[in-house]
Design a protein around this nucleic acid. Structure first.
Lengths: 158, 158
DNA sequence: CCGTATCCTGATAGATACTG
DNA sequence: CAGTATCTATCAGGATACGG
């Protein structure tokens, strides 16, 4: 059985099970820290090596090491051994499907910052290769309709 | 002048100005903490009163007070005085346009958690009122095309 | 109902130095 | 290049108590 409720005005999910199972809160437990987001950002940009993660995300090595390990443990990154000729085995950190699926969330944060925190629309834009237009995120229902916030309502899942 | 770069493989924004101006990092400075996200979640759900924020977000009063003040200072929430008949003046916290514009980011985090952290697709779903289908976020360019991650490239803004 | 003031614990994260 | 080991400072956030 499911139950719907207006998104604005009247109040939303209550009672213990909702707070416990809230997937925003649980996602934030996986991505608890600023450094985790920045490591992920670098992974999307194509960074794969330890030192590059630390330097480009602006993190100390211990923090980078801790975050990389946690993200691997959570299944967002995977350590992939590789060996260049004449070198010892090293490890590359790559996004898993689970990690790559966070791209829309990163894009949403970037889009908001571009709009509200930077006078020039942000230092870096994502561009659709085929047509050159900027890429962002949009609210959309599974039937493909664009959705305005006011057109949403909450439905309890069980 | 702008410069483009592949999104995958070859590496992305370098040099000082990018790291400093990165709008993901700056957005995370505004929404630094888990509690800030949870307060915002409650604001979207329609919560307006101090005690409700603290209880529903599962935060202690001091933390709720600190976060509410910061979010007001940042311009994501506004304190609106109101007076019920026979009561003293109270304050309601409401989303500003700037705060409301974070909805896609929250939806993106929720969508990811629903998919990867919950066996049943999450406890609460967003539903398009008109058609009943679930609402999520999608990558889309300004010309309205759906965009796959591999179809994006980065463009430097100045 | 709407907060503030204090105190305390643990986690985040920088600096530095060291190893294979 | 790819980390680990310490040490330390700062901050998030809970508990409790108190005031308008």
């Amino acid at each position: 059985m499911s139950h719907t409720i207006e998104m604005t005005g009247v109040l939303a999910p209550r009672s213990a099970w909702t707070a416990d199972r809230c997937t925003i809160a649980r996602t934030l437990s996986v991505l608890s820290t600023r450094s985790a987001f920045l490591i992920l950002r670098e992974a999307f940009y194509g960074t794969t090596r330890f030192d590059d993660f630390a330097e480009r995300a602006g993190l100390s090595e211990p923090v980078a090491a801790a975050r990389l390990r946690e993200l691997v443990d959570e299944g967002l990154l995977e350590r992939e051994p590789y060996r260049e000729p004449g070198q010892r085995t090293r490890h590359a950190y790559r996004l898993t499907d689970k990690g790559a699926d966070l791209l829309p969330a990163l894009v949403a944060l970037m889009q908001w910052g571009d709009r509200w925190l930077d006078d020039d629309g942000g230092p870096v834009k994502l561009e659709h290769r085929d047509c050159g237009a900027n890429v962002g995120v949009a609210l959309r229902c599974e039937r493909g309709h664009d959705v305005e916030p006011a057109e949403m309502q909450l439905r309890y899942n069980r």
